[in-house]
Write a protein that binds this DNA or RNA. Structure first.
Lengths: 205, 205
DNA sequence: CTCCTAACAGGTCGATCATCCTGTTTTGGA
DNA sequence: TCCAAAACAGGATGATCGACCTGTTAGGAG
C-alpha cells in the first residue's frame, strides 16, 4: 500500500534544490535558468519547490549564502590560512584553478563573479549579500599581507590595495578565460602576480 | 495629406535600435532586456524591429560589433596610442573611468565584460566576436609595452602577460566595483598597477 | 489514537518572452 | 511612368516564465 511512498526528507530535498541551482546558476547564469529546469534537475515537484523556496529570488539568496560563499572559502580563504605566506597561497590557488580547468577542458568562470554580474544591478539585497562575500575575501587576503609584514616577510606594501589587485586580477582573468574559453589569462596573471609580489617580499631563496 | 508620415530612415532607425540596445544590455543585461522594452526605448514598431534585426541574437551581435568594440577602442586603445608610454596611458584611463563613475554615482560595469559574462556560454558565435575584441584590446596594450621596451623606456618585462594583468585587473576591478557599487577597487588597482609598472620602467622623475 | 502542521504532489494562472504575420507606404532603378 | 523591393505599421502566435493553487500524506505533540 505504501508503494511510491513520498520521501519526506526536507533537508535532503532542500539540499538537492540548492545543489542543482548552484550548478545551473554558475554554468548557465541565474536569469537563463528557469524554475522548471531546476525542478527537473533536482527531481522535485512544483509543490516541494514552492514550499522550500517561495520565489526564485529566495533560492538565489540561499545559493549565494550557502554555496557561493562556501566556494570562495574553500578555494581562497582556506588555502590562505594553510600557507606560510600570501604569495605562496596565491600561486597555489592559481595553480589549482589552472589544473582544474585544464582537466575539465572548459571555463565556467568564478561563481561569485558570475552571480554578481547578473543580479547585483537588479536586486539590492542580493548585491549586499554578494558584497559581503567580496569583503570577506578581501579581508582574509588583506590580513594575510598584514601578517606577512608583521612577521618581517615583506615590507613597503599596502595590504588592502594589494589584496584588491590580486582579487581583481583573479576575477578578471577568470572572466576573460570564460569569454575566450582559454586558461591563458590565468597563467599570465599567475606569473605576473608572482613577479610583482616577489619585489615586495624578502627573497629567501 | 501627408500627416503622420512615416520616417523611412533605415540608417537612423537601425542606429536608434542599436543605441537603445547597447544602453539596455550594458545597464540591465542582455537576457534581462526584452525585445518589447527595446522597441519602446527606440520608439520603433515590431515590423521595423523585425526588418532590421530578425532575431535578438543578431541584434546582440550588431551591438557587440558596432558599440562594444567601439567602446573598448575609445576608452582604451585610443588613449594608448595618444600617450607617451603604457603606464601613463593606463593611469589616465583608470583616472577617466574613476572620475566618470564618481560623477555618475553608479557603476554599470565594463560593457565588454557585461556582455561576455552573459552570452559567451550560450552562443559560440557571440563568444568568438567577443574574444576578438579582447584580443584586439590585449594586442594594443601588448604592443605598447613592446614599443616602450624598444624605446628603452622599460626593460625586463613580458609585454603579453603584463598586458593580460592590466586588462584582468581592470575588468576584475570593474566587476567588483559594480557588485559593491563602489569605485574603491578601481582606485586600489590604479595605484597598485602604477607601482608595479614603476618598478619595470626607468624612472624619469 | 487524535490532530495539527510541515512536507510534498500536480496542475493552473496571467504575464511576458521572442518571433512572425499580413498589410501599407516609400524608394530607387528600368 | 511603372514596378519590384525595401522600409515600415500593428498586431497575433505559441512557448515559457515565475508564482500560486487546491489536495494529499507523513511526522510529531498531546
Amino acid at each position: 500500500m505504501t508503494e511510491n511512498r513520498r520521501t519526506n526528507d526536507p533537508q535532503g530535498v532542500r539540499r538537492r534544490i540548492i545543489d542543482a541551482a548552484y550548478d545551473a546558476f554558475v554554468s548557465q547564469g541565474y536569469i537563463a535558468t528557469g524554475m522548471l529546469e531546476l525542478r527537473a534537475r533536482a527531481s522535485v515537484s512544483g509543490g516541494a519547490m514552492a514550499h522550500h523556496f517561495p520565489s526564485k529570488r529566495e533560492l538565489g539568496l540561499a545559493v549565494i549564502r550557502d554555496r557561493v560563499a562556501e566556494a570562495v572559502r574553500q578555494t581562497w580563504i582556506n588555502p590562505l590560512h594553510a600557507c606560510a605566506d600570501a604569495p605562496t597561497a596565491i600561486d597555489l590557488i592559481f595553480g589549482n584553478i589552472i589544473d582544474e580547468l585544464t582537466l575539465k577542458g572548459s571555463v565556467s568562470g568564478c561563481p561569485l563573479n558570475n552571480m554578481a554580474m547578473e543580479v547585483s544591478q537588479h536586486d539590492p539585497e542580493m548585491r549586499d549579500v554578494l558584497s559581503e562575500v567580496f569583503y570577506a575575501w578581501h579581508d582574509a587576503l588583506s590580513e594575510k599581507f598584514q601578517a606577512d609584514v608583521a612577521s618581517k616577510r615583506a615590507s613597503d606594501l599596502n595590504p588592502s590595495s594589494l589584496a584588491t589587485l590580486a582579487i581583481a586580477a583573479y576575477s578578471g582573468a577568470m572572466a576573460i578565460a570564460k569569454a575566450c574559453q582559454d586558461v591563458g589569462p590565468l597563467v599570465d596573471c599567475r606569473s605576473e602576480l608572482a613577479a610583482t609580489l616577489a619585489t615586495k617580499y624578502h627573497s629567501v631563496t
